[in-house]
Design a protein around this nucleic acid. Structure first.
Lengths: 227, 227
DNA sequence: GTAACGTCAAATGTATCCATTTGCAAGGGA
DNA sequence: TCCCTTGCAAATGGATACATTTGACGTTAC
């Protein structure tokens, strides 16, 4: 998303990018919660830097959709209303099948095998954080054949902004009862293995749509008090 | 897109936002061309400011998709390859019908009348800049009933990043021969007037798709030398 | 003649200091 | 008691000055 550098380890990148990466991890891991205020001075002190690179970092995160900034007021971790979250999912319903279509013809056999393995691992685990990490790896591996820029970026933003709510949802609602998800993953792996774009697109759309509809039925996810 | 302030006139907004607005206008009007380098110092001098707000402005424009920045190297007006442009249009094909669906139920009768008038004006004009302005007003008016945030922002970005190429395309290829466009606009106005979401979605998809396919057949648009 | 190295200039990145804005709280008046 | 006004403190916005990086040009060695 950001230039050259990967987000996991950026030992000697430009300071503003390193700070952005660290904050991104903090937000996605749940360490920083939606709606939480981010004070420039505080972050600057925390990383032993001045406020300038912190401000740049915050603007980078605005680009990622993870932070909101208001002039002369401050910055907050992005938060979504239930309606906005539903909107994000509807966008994903329309875009992710397209990304999968771009990717599918270029997926190596090894990737298809790995997809099957990931689906199995997800069935096995009980740990929510592990599940979320595997789920993310699964879907992004299925998209890894695509050489798109904009499309991948948009979808990554949507994954990121909805992640805190997906976490709460999984924790509160789905505890133990995610059978349909596993079935859909299996169907997806099959369609991908067969190279059947059309079928894969349809399954993926349904997969996302079902989650959206389930989320629509649980407003408590959005009134949940993070911390 | 940016907080509170509108982009057309922001007399007393924060400096970085004013600079961003000015640069955005310069890019969209064609004054700055894709691939053109943007030097911080130059812009700073031009607006009588220091480089700090210029950098913030550039980051805002990165969010808008209008500028690319590379660490320790510089900033350039975004440019698209033919493949990327096609990608942007494919995203629009999937998303704009959704936005129209959000908007349609809340469009006032006055807006529907105005849409019809705009379609007529477009048929009448020969001036490309006028046509582009009317076309933009037309489509965005059709979306004005939607109270979405993310979806509108994504689509606006896609309109913005493709605008330079749309301009060249209209100038080089479509001179005089845009009958199908006018017919589709009329069909769209009709479907909207009837409140027929499904039909409107289908027409809009075809409208965008046809332009994409036509663009795909004209690589010279992307080798065109801007200046 | 070519390739590799070193130096230098131009542009970006960062820190420090000061200006401006905002929001809250205390005080006074109706 | 409520509301409006005023003033102060905290946080953000911006300017100047300095550090760092990059790429290009010229030199030198092979």
């Amino acid at each position: 998303m950001t230039p050259v550098t990967t987000s996991t380890d950026t030992p000697n990148a430009v300071l503003s990018i390193r700070i952005a990466d660290a904050l991104r991890v903090a937000i996605l891991s749940g360490e920083l919660s939606p709606g939480e205020r981010i004070r420039q001075e505080e972050i600057a002190e925390q990383y032993g830097a001045s406020r300038i690179p912190v401000r740049e970092a915050l603007r980078i995160l605005v680009t990622d959709g993870l932070v909101n900034m208001v002039s002369n007021s401050g910055a907050w971790v992005s938060s979504l209303t239930q309606e906005e979250c539903s909107e994000h999912y509807q966008i994903r319903e329309r875009l992710e099948p397209l990304l999968l279509r771009y990717s599918l013809p270029h997926l190596a056999p090894a990737s298809r095998e790995r997809l099957r393995a990931l689906a199995e691992e997800m069935k096995a685990t009980k740990d929510i954080e592990v599940f979320m990490r595997l789920d993310r790896e699964f879907h992004w591996l299925s998209y890894s054949g695509a050489s798109t820029n904009t499309l991948s970026d948009i979808i990554e933003r949507l994954w990121n902004t909805t992640q805190p709510y997906r976490r709460v949802f999984t924790r509160m609602v789905r505890v133990g009862g995610i059978d349909a998800t596993h079935l859909e993953h299996e169907l997806l792996v099959d369609a991908i293995s067969r190279g059947d774009s059309e079928d894969a697109e349809r399954i993926l759309l349904g997969h996302i749509r079902r989650t959206r509809i389930e989320l629509d039925r649980h407003p408590e996810v959005f009134t949940h008090d993070f911390d």
